[in-house]
């Protein structure tokens, strides 16, 4: 039971990332993004002191806030429609994501032993899982908002992995700047697209 509870944030974060990959509904995606970033906190807390473990989730929340405010500005925030049927594209993306995670899960022990022996398996599973889902997101869509989510997911996976390898204040500061700039760039693209659509 304890083991399951410890793994729960991993599954929730991956589920949120999968939801972002599958479903294209802005409000839902923002909530999923918040959940995804929040779930990083317990994982980080295992290896970092509280103050440092808070940086990445907090940055994630700020990033989501920037995106939320932008979407609000262009009228993109709408009520969530929970009654929907899945399209073939969504099914495909969902299956692709699950397939990737399944493969990752299968080969994780060997991978861990060969490349990252010092990283806990849950930690590794979540970080690589986020990287893979982020990459799939990047490769399957060209809409700026989802590409921003894809890049943020990918980066959060990398940051999570790297925090287990070594820690540097300079690097952390730089990565925070990257995340925030990425959100601003995403917002910039959303506004530009909205402007050109209305023009």
């Amino acid at each position: 039971m304890t083991e399951f509870l410890q793994s729960l944030p991993v599954y929730i974060a991956l589920l949120a990332a999968l939801l972002n990959l599958v479903r294209r509904q802005w409000t839902l995606n923002l909530i999923a993004l918040v959940v995804q970033f929040a779930c990083l906190f317990p994982m980080l807390l295992k290896i970092l002191p509280l103050q440092l473990a808070l940086i990445q989730p907090f940055t994630g929340l700020m990033v989501t806030l920037i995106l939320y405010l932008t979407l609000l500005g262009v009228g993109g925030i709408k009520a969530i429609n929970l009654l929907f049927s899945l399209t073939s594209g969504e099914i495909f993306r969902g299956l692709a994501g699950i397939f990737l995670l399944a493969i990752l899960g299968t080969f994780l022990p060997q991978f861990q032993q060969a490349v990252f022996p010092l990283v806990p398996s849950n930690h590794l599973f979540l970080s690589i899982g986020l990287v893979l889902i982020g990459l799939t997101q990047l490769g399957t869509i060209s809409e700026p908002f989802y590409l921003a989510i894809g890049m943020l997911t990918f980066l959060s996976g990398i940051e999570l992995l790297y925090s287990a390898l070594e820690y540097s204040f300079l690097l952390e500061a730089l990565l925070v700047a990257v995340n925030l700039l990425l959100a601003i760039v995403g917002a910039f693209f959303i506004v530009k697209n909205a402007e050109s659509e209305s023009a």
């Binding site: 990459l135 799939t136 990047l138 490769g139 399957t140 869509i141 060209s142």
Partner: peptide, 9 residues
């Protein structure tokens, strides 16, 4: 195309 990134990978 849209799948260009995946192809690159």
């Amino acid at each position: 195309g849209d799948g260009g990134i995946l192809w690159s990978l």
